[in-house]
Amino acid sequence: MRCRRVLVTVLTTTVAAGVALLPAPARAAGLTVAFWPMNEARGAHRMIDTSGNGRHGRIGNEVAIGESLGDDGGYRFERLEPDTPPPHPGHLVVVPDDSSLDPGTDDFAVTVRLRTTNKFGNIIQKGQATVAGGNFKLQIPSGRVECTFRGPKAFLEVVAPYAINDGDWHVVRCVRVPEGVFLTIDGREVASRSGWTGPIANSWPITIGGKLDCDQVEVGCDYYAGDLDYIMIEAMRSHW
């Protein structure tokens, strides 16, 4: 597992694919709320949070763990046919609800290292589209990462301008700050949207690998297919 130190970077306004990007804030999202290196041995049922904050998760029985993924270890999520019942709750990793895992009004960032050749699936989320209190989600439809933060003030979504389902490892980071939401891939800012979501907090757990409340008929489970090396969540009180 390649754990990368989070750096505070100051980016000037740039233009990519004809879209003006927000200036990245001069502060990082900051303090580690949870870090899941996903290096448990085969047979483990508990995903360990190594941040020291105790945000451990439950690993579903369909998640392949202890996988040798090239130079790294991690979790493998096999492909499931979209919108085809029955649902597979064992495909998920579930972290119990905790207020520290909600963006609230803080600067908030989610970082994922992933590898896939597939073109759909929800990678990580807390809450779903209509839940009270808002939600956040990273997904990868058509192989392009999308990051969304939904709050009482606005629904902000950023979409990568290119696909990353090329079978290589990529580090994806999505940050919500008072100025808006921006997305980086492999250290480069690729998309942003200005605005303020307002506070986001719900009573749902975090799910990794798909939706919790779904039946594959009325509501698709949007199961992720691919490898995950690590996930990190950071937050810092906004000074604004």
Results as ranks from 00 to 15, higher is better:
residue 142 S to P: 07
residue 158 V to R: 07
residue 90 G to A: 14
residue 50 T to P: 01
residue 157 E to M: 12
residue 143 G to D: 10
residue 64 A to I: 07
residue 83 D to R: 00
residue 163 A to P: 04
residue 119 K to F: 15
residue 119 K to W: 15
residue 152 P to T: 10
residue 110 V to N: 13
residue 134 G to K: 04
residue 141 P to R: 14
residue 53 N to P: 03
residue 129 A to D: 13
residue 95 V to N: 03
residue 127 G to Q: 09
residue 75 Y to P: 01
residue 132 A to I: 14
residue 162 Y to H: 12
residue 64 A to G: 02
residue 94 V to L: 07
residue 97 D to Y: 11
residue 108 F to W: 09
residue 46 R to N: 03
residue 160 A to Y: 08
residue 143 G to E: 11
residue 113 R to D: 02
residue 81 E to A: 11
residue 74 G to E: 03
residue 63 V to S: 02
residue 79 R to T: 07
residue 60 G to A: 05
residue 108 F to E: 03
residue 132 A to V: 15
residue 82 P to G: 12
residue 96 P to Q: 09
residue 153 K to H: 14
residue 62 E to D: 12
residue 56 H to T: 04
residue 109 A to C: 09
residue 66 G to N: 02
residue 45 H to P: 00
residue 111 T to C: 05
residue 62 E to V: 01
residue 74 G to N: 04
residue 74 G to S: 06
residue 127 G to C: 11
residue 147 C to P: 01
residue 145 V to D: 03
residue 134 G to D: 02
residue 65 I to P: 00
residue 154 A to K: 14
residue 156 L to C: 11
residue 62 E to I: 00
residue 68 S to G: 05
residue 123 I to M: 04
residue 59 I to R: 01
residue 83 D to P: 00
residue 103 P to N: 13
residue 129 A to W: 11
residue 156 L to W: 07
residue 144 R to P: 01
residue 113 R to Q: 08
residue 122 N to H: 10
residue 85 P to Q: 10
residue 153 K to Y: 13
residue 68 S to K: 06
residue 81 E to N: 06
residue 47 M to T: 01
residue 129 A to N: 07
residue 57 G to A: 01
residue 54 G to Q: 11
residue 146 E to V: 15
residue 102 D to C: 15
residue 158 V to C: 02
residue 43 G to I: 10
residue 69 L to H: 09
residue 154 A to E: 15
residue 140 I to R: 04
residue 108 F to S: 09
residue 136 F to A: 12
residue 128 Q to D: 15
residue 100 S to K: 15
residue 48 I to Y: 03
residue 106 D to C: 00
residue 60 G to C: 09
residue 48 I to N: 01
residue 51 S to I: 10
residue 50 T to G: 01
residue 68 S to N: 13
residue 157 E to D: 08
